[in-house]
Simulated assay, not measured.
Amino acid sequence: MTTQQIADRFYMLAQEGKFDEIQDELYAQDVKSTEPEGSPWPQVQGIAAVKEKGVKFNEMVEEMYGGFTDRPIVSGNTFACRMGFEAKMKGREREAMEEIALYRVKDGKIISEQFFM
Rank of each mutant, 00 (worst) to 15 (best):
residue 27 Y to M: 13
residue 12 M to P: 00
residue 3 T to V: 05
residue 50 V to E: 04
residue 32 K to F: 02
residue 21 E to I: 10
residue 90 K to N: 09
residue 49 A to M: 10
residue 4 Q to T: 13
residue 41 W to F: 15
residue 41 W to N: 10
residue 42 P to N: 07
residue 99 E to Y: 14
residue 61 V to H: 07
residue 15 Q to F: 04
residue 107 D to H: 05
residue 114 Q to R: 15
residue 27 Y to G: 00
residue 52 E to P: 01
residue 78 T to F: 10
residue 69 T to S: 14
residue 104 R to D: 12
residue 44 V to F: 04
residue 5 Q to W: 03
residue 2 T to G: 09
residue 73 I to K: 11
residue 87 A to N: 03
residue 40 P to N: 04
residue 51 K to D: 08
residue 23 Q to C: 07
residue 64 M to R: 11
residue 5 Q to I: 02
residue 27 Y to R: 01
residue 107 D to I: 03
residue 94 R to V: 14
residue 104 R to K: 14
residue 78 T to A: 09
residue 47 I to C: 03
residue 86 E to C: 13
residue 78 T to R: 14
residue 12 M to N: 12
residue 66 G to A: 09
residue 38 G to C: 08
residue 106 K to Q: 15
residue 8 D to F: 05
residue 84 G to T: 02
residue 105 V to E: 05
residue 51 K to I: 06
residue 95 E to N: 11
residue 104 R to T: 15
residue 112 S to V: 05
residue 2 T to V: 07
residue 93 E to W: 01
residue 25 E to M: 07
residue 81 C to H: 14
residue 57 F to P: 01
residue 102 L to M: 13
residue 70 D to N: 14
residue 41 W to D: 09
residue 10 F to R: 02
residue 9 R to S: 09
residue 110 I to N: 03
residue 113 E to R: 12
residue 18 K to S: 09
residue 51 K to V: 06
residue 55 V to W: 05
residue 78 T to E: 15
residue 116 F to W: 11
residue 57 F to V: 01
residue 66 G to K: 06
residue 91 G to K: 04
residue 106 K to M: 11
residue 9 R to L: 04
residue 87 A to W: 01
residue 116 F to T: 08
residue 67 G to L: 06
residue 92 R to Q: 15
residue 17 G to Y: 07
residue 81 C to Q: 10
residue 76 G to H: 05
residue 102 L to W: 03
residue 6 I to S: 02
residue 98 E to C: 08
residue 114 Q to C: 10
residue 92 R to A: 13
residue 84 G to M: 07
residue 28 A to I: 06
residue 79 F to T: 01
residue 16 E to P: 00
residue 31 V to C: 11
residue 3 T to L: 08
residue 85 F to T: 00
residue 81 C to V: 05
residue 17 G to R: 07
residue 105 V to K: 04
residue 14 A to V: 07
residue 43 Q to K: 13
residue 93 E to Y: 01
residue 8 D to M: 09
residue 34 T to F: 06
residue 51 K to P: 07
residue 13 L to R: 02
residue 65 Y to C: 00
residue 27 Y to I: 02
residue 45 Q to K: 14
residue 67 G to Q: 07
residue 11 Y to N: 08
residue 90 K to D: 05
residue 86 E to M: 13
residue 68 F to W: 15
residue 16 E to S: 11
residue 96 A to H: 11
residue 11 Y to I: 03
residue 114 Q to H: 08
residue 109 K to E: 08
residue 57 F to G: 02
residue 31 V to F: 08
residue 49 A to D: 07
residue 49 A to C: 07
residue 31 V to E: 02
residue 58 N to E: 10
residue 76 G to R: 06
residue 63 E to P: 00
residue 73 I to Y: 12
residue 89 M to D: 00
residue 74 V to C: 05
residue 91 G to I: 01
residue 74 V to Q: 03
residue 38 G to E: 04
residue 91 G to V: 04
residue 38 G to V: 09
residue 57 F to W: 14
residue 14 A to S: 15
residue 8 D to E: 15
residue 18 K to F: 07
residue 44 V to S: 02
residue 82 R to K: 14
residue 53 K to T: 12
residue 59 E to Q: 15
residue 105 V to R: 01
residue 20 D to K: 11
residue 69 T to K: 02
residue 23 Q to R: 13
residue 29 Q to R: 10
residue 90 K to S: 03
residue 112 S to C: 05
residue 29 Q to K: 12
residue 21 E to Q: 14
residue 103 Y to K: 02
residue 116 F to I: 12
residue 2 T to K: 10
residue 112 S to R: 04
residue 76 G to S: 05
residue 85 F to D: 09
residue 29 Q to C: 00
residue 110 I to P: 01
residue 98 E to H: 11
residue 37 E to A: 15
residue 1 M to N: 09
